[in-house]
């Protein structure tokens, strides 16, 4: 398993380089212009000058090479400088966003707290609710609990966040006045009261996001458990006199985790990717809204960098999932 991991890690470098090239070419090919949001009152000659100042006049391969150097060589140096107080990267040009004319990575770092607070919490809450629901629904298939769970999760999944978000706002913010709905990113948690405020402002977006996660994961959990509950080894375990709890939570659960691990691993990069619609509805301004804003403004360096970070996370978490398969089911061998 160790050799497999190392081999995959080594292999992921060319994979990621290839992915970055494909993303770059895709963005290049996509119609769009960083001047799209400039008011129409600005004459075309001025826009042309602004494009040149952004470096758009250079050929594609030059710009791709520049981005590679900036991302893989200069940005790590900046990070080292930041932590150790060195000055390796001084004077070097970093990846600069076209919208804000500031280093992309600085903005990404700025956005991580609210993204993790809201989207990360929602994901964890979602998983924590989904697993028990899935397990119990399968164990008591077609019970009232199972039917209710099915109904709620399926309806929850069919109703998109652009509807649930405003619905919760109307009910809880406008009518009842319990929670704020414009997320305050400047808020800092220092004591109990500020933690309570943080909790209150997180609760609505977390509810919206957790609903989707719960629905998805609990369905896979339930289906997979059902597949395993009737297997021979379960009968054997019961015959051995093991308690129901041990049979279900140890034997069946472990064997049912493979699809669930896949789904959870696929969702992990999405935490960092944020939740575009929900972030927009609640003005969370996390990484999701950063990405969509950059896409609409055709801020190519920002889009390229963000999508590439997601690509790294996707490759990484899929590797983790593959390793977990081997642990969950030792029969799975990759070599």
């Amino acid at each position: 398993m160790l050799t497999f991991t190392i081999r995959r890690l080594v292999l992921s470098v060319p994979t990621l380089l290839f992915i970055s090239l494909i993303i770059f070419l895709l963005l290049e090919l996509a119609p769009g212009d960083p001047m799209a949001q400039v008011p129409l009152t600005v004459p075309p000659e001025v826009k042309e000058k602004m494009r040149e100042a952004l470096g758009l006049g250079q050929p594609t391969h030059v710009r791709f090479w520049k981005w590679l150097v900036q991302f893989f060589w200069i940005e790590p140096q900046v990070m080292i400088d930041h932590y150790f107080g060195t000055t390796y990267a001084e004077g070097d040009l970093r990846v600069i966003s076209w919208q804000t004319r500031s280093p992309v990575m600085d903005i990404v770092v700025q956005r991580i707290p609210q993204t993790l607070w809201v989207v990360g919490t929602a994901y964890i809450v979602g998983i924590l609710i989904a697993l028990p629901i899935g397990i119990y629904s399968a164990y008591r298939q077609y019970s009232v609990f199972d039917q209710c769970g099915t109904f709620v999760t399926m309806v929850g999944f069919s109703i998109p966040p652009f509807f649930t978000g405003p619905l919760l706002i109307v009910v809880f913010s406008v009518q009842l006045g319990w929670f704020p709905f414009i997320y305050d990113t400047t808020h800092k948690v220092t004591d109990w009261d500020s933690f309570v405020y943080q909790f209150r402002q997180m609760i609505l977006p977390v509810m919206v996001l957790a609903l989707q996660t719960t629905a998805q994961i609990s369905r896979f959990m339930r289906a997979s458990m059902l597949d395993n509950l009737n297997q021979d080894y379960v009968r054997t375990a019961r015959a051995k006199g093991l308690s129901e709890a041990v049979v279900v939570t140890v034997h069946v659960l472990r064997n049912s985790m493979i699809p669930v691990v896949t789904v959870i691993a696929l969702g992990m990069p999405a935490i960092f990717g944020g939740a575009i619609i929900t972030e927009q509805v609640f003005s969370v301004n996390g990484i999701g809204s950063l990405l969509i804003g950059a896409l609409f403004a055709n801020d190519l360096p920002m889009v390229q960098t963000l999508t590439f970070i997601f690509a790294i996370l996707i490759v990484f978490f899929n590797l983790i999932a593959d390793i977990l398969y081997g642990i969950l089911d030792p029969r799975i061998r990759y070599d």
Binding site: L11, I19, L26, L27, P269, L295, F310, I314, N318
Partner: peptide, 22 residues
Amino acid sequence: LMRLTDLFLSLPILPLLLVAVT
């Protein structure tokens, strides 16, 4: 095939759409 899957997971959907439409 799995690296291809990784690639497709990484592609930003909006530019992909715009390219397809164009």
